[in-house]
Design a protein around this nucleic acid. Structure first.
Ligand code: SF4
Ligand code: SF4
Lengths: 147, 147
DNA sequence: GACAATAAAGATGATTTTAGTCCTATTTAT
DNA sequence: ATAAATAGGACTAAAATCATCTTTATTGTC
């Protein structure tokens, strides 16, 4: 259906939240869930995926919680999404050569290849650090407007 | 999940097939189904959508079948897909302003907007006439290789 | 008018995905 | 020990996906 699932959406929100926190701070799942408006028990699953994918580090027990496993500059939007949704393929023939047996004579195949390239270019080009900085700028603007 | 459904895939195949036929020729559903490797009864539904969307014209009864309703030069890949899948939105916030109430302060929103713009640029930029011509060139190449 | 060929329309259904919830186990600081 | 946290797995309702089948309507030919 060519659209993002809630998994992907929530993953981006969660990683972005962690990226916006001060270096070294540990965030609770309930804190992320509330600010990012994600159901807490659902978010729990998302966070597990992010940990396994190596984007986020977790600590259990008292004073536990989540923090980024790597610098926000090194995490792209694509990585956050693919951590929970798996690799992005706009059409099955992009999975690998031969996945659709028509691919060697199909004129549509190259179009999907190009479309996917352009889409990923955008998602690869946006780091969580950049998003966090954009977010700060935006929240200043919004506050000004509310005056 | 960010990938095309069989509906969209089959719609493109069907319209492309019609675009590759000689001007004015009427094609049977069984003929399209066989050459394009689409289940016949499924294709029947797809064709109905294409007719209602105004891309294809149908005729019932003996000597009936399908043909393009407009020149192949004026039908884009996007139109074929959207005729059966509905409008493409990579994320819900692209449906319309306010669909996600976070959109006015969300730094991720503009990224999806840009990603979608680039994706649609590709799909809008490919007409069925162009695909048909690419297809002809490809089939010549494939035949040469088989020698 | 009967008949055969063809698409239109709608009912049905199996399977998978989506979008969650809930409960128990495990880890950890005090 | 205990309380506070995440980890992990079982479960579920609703929707989407990918079809199939049957009946109806239309149309050309004899
Ligand atoms: S676009 Fe062509 S190659 Fe890709 S899935 Fe469709 S038929 Fe196969
Ligand atoms: S990207 Fe931002 S605006 Fe779009 S759906 Fe997610 S939160 Fe809402």
């Amino acid at each position: 259906m060519l659209n993002l699932t809630r998994d992907g959406e929530y993953a981006v929100r969660a990683v972005l939240y962690l990226s916006s926190q001060p270096e070294g701070k540990i965030s609770l799942i309930s804190e992320i869930a509330e600010t990012q408006e994600v159901p807490k028990s659902y978010l729990s699953k998302i966070m597990q995926h992010l940990v396994r994918a190596g984007l986020v580090r977790s600590r259990r027990g008292i004073n536990g919680g989540f923090m980024l496993a790597r610098p926000a500059e090194s995490i792209t939007m694509r990585q956050a999404i693919e951590a929970v949704e798996g690799p992005i393929f706009l059409n099955i023939c992009l999975v690998k050569k031969g996945e659709c047996h028509r691919d060697d004579f199909c004129p549509v195949h190259p179009v999907w290849k190009e479309a996917q390239r352009r889409l990923l270019e955008v998602l690869d080009g946006k780091t969580m650090a950049a998003l966090a900085s954009d977010g700060e700028a935006l929240s200043k603007k919004v506050k000004k407007k509310q005056k």
